[in-house]
């Protein structure tokens, strides 16, 4: 049996998650290539494939009906589908448009009516196809992806944390953003990133989406009481990466 075949596919997104993979550097990428073959990867190679794939890494959100068929074709020829990055996992930051109707003019100005900009709501790829695993984050964590791929190579179920970022901040003894008069959403944000943002003094924006059953009412209260947000700002803030995960 040959090495498992891996392919990257992109939908609505910045392709930064593909770039993030290249940031693993030659040592790690060449190490991985001892165990897998990459057969399609637009940001790094010109070859494409229409053959069967073992692991499809699908990046970007589903925003146009015309993409449905392509997603379904990827699903059909892939043994495992991983939603790769926030846009694919939850709709990501693209989903902010789902709560707006005036963005065309304000973002694109005179080009607002160009036909390729007429897209639908930004949805996670799971709204179209079955997803086996999620590599969360904006960008997706490259180290986590290596862990996920390694687990799959051993036929293990990858461990993808469901606890919040607070757990990782505490494990690294990071000073809480609220202790420094700031805001944060680490209490409801899915961990797995290792909490690098709060460690650098930057609030967690929940780019990996929410934990299961996030206490959003309490989040709004804490953002208002402890960070001095208005209610509108508290609600808006908690939508940044998670617009599809809440009302």
């Amino acid at each position: 049996m040959g090495k498992p075949k891996i392919a990257f596919f992109d939908f609505a997104g910045c392709e930064g998650c593909q770039i993030e993979f290249t940031n693993l550097g030659p040592e790690v990428i060449l190490g991985l290539l001892e165990h897998v073959d990459i057969v399609e990867f637009r940001e790094a190679m010109t070859e494409k494939t229409t053959e069967r794939i073992d692991i499809a890494l699908v990046e970007g959100s589903f925003t146009m009906e015309k993409d449905r068929e392509r997603l379904q074709s990827i699903r059909k020829r892939s043994r495992i589908v991983i939603a790769y990055g926030a846009c694919a996992c939850t709709g990501g930051i693209n989903a902010l448009r789902n709560h707006m109707d005036d963005y065309h003019e304000c973002v694109y100005g005179p080009d607002a009516r160009m036909p390729h900009l007429q897209s639908g709501p930004a949805l996670p790829i799971s709204s179209v196809i079955k997803v086996d695993y999620y590599a969360h984050g904006c960008p997706a964590s490259k180290d986590e992806l290596v862990r996920i791929l390694s687990s799959l190579l051993h036929n293990d179920t990858p461990f993808i944390p469901s606890y919040p970022v607070c757990v990782e901040c505490k494990r690294t003894e990071t000073v809480c953003r609220f202790d420094e008069g700031d805001y944060c959403m680490g209490m409801v944000a899915r961990a797995g990133c290792g909490a690098p943002c709060p460690a650098l003094g930057i609030p967690c924006e929940a780019c990996r989406g929410f934990v299961d059953e996030p206490n959003l009412r309490s989040l709004e209260t804490v953002l208002m009481e402890r960070a001095g947000f208005s209610q509108d700002r508290a609600i808006g803030k908690s939508r940044m990466f998670t617009a599809n995960l809440r009302s």
């Binding site: 606890y163 607070c166 757990v167 505490k170 680490g186 209490m187 409801v188 206490n215 309490s218 209260t221």
Partner: peptide, 13 residues
């Protein structure tokens, strides 16, 4: 527990 986030910070400290 109404406002609890289940974030585990009470445990981890």
């Amino acid at each position: 527990a109404e406002r609890c986030f289940s974030c585990g910070s009470c445990n981890t400290v």
